[in-house]
Write a protein that binds this DNA or RNA. Structure first.
Length: 121
DNA sequence: AACGTGACCCTAG
DNA sequence: ACTAGGGCCACGT
């Protein structure tokens, strides 16, 4: 995975699979952003597609392994994808169960929990 | 087939 | 510090 950059184009099946692969590497109790994943995969401007891939991860039953979609938030730590989970508070509850505090749909002390695949992988 | 709509983000004023 | 605009691209209508 270390040399996975700049391969699959955004929107492709491979890109979606790569997004899921990176998301599975987010450590317990840490979070990252859509843009950070997109940048790591060499498609810095396609962060929307990362969100779409997360959507698929939740709704597609034929996933080999689960994807921790709750650990992916937006640039400033807001749980912008919360409404796509089974219940509107499921995303928050999962993060809180990992020791991450949430206030007003936003990760408290976001920088301390942020995990950047480009620099930590 | 065109059009609007986003789990987004960066740049310019 | 804030807003507006543009790029991105799958999907539903």
């Amino acid at each position: 995975m270390t040399q996975k950059q700049a391969t699959a184009r955004p929107g492709s099946r491979d890109f979606e699979r790569d997004v899921h692969a990176v998301a599975r590497l987010i450590p317990f109790g840490r979070v990252t952003s859509y843009g950070a994943i997109a940048q790591y995969l060499g498609a810095a401007r396609s962060s929307r597609m990362v969100g779409w891939a997360m959507n698929r991860a939740l709704n597609t039953t034929s996933e080999g392994q689960p994807v921790p979609a709750h650990r992916v938030v937006n640039r400033i730590g807001v749980l912008s994808g919360r409404l796509h989970f089974p219940t509107p508070i499921a995303m928050q509850e999962r993060l809180e169960s990992e020791g991450i505090a949430i206030r007003d749909h936003q990760v408290v002390n976001f920088n301390a929990h942020f995990w950047n695949p480009s620099t930590e992988l």
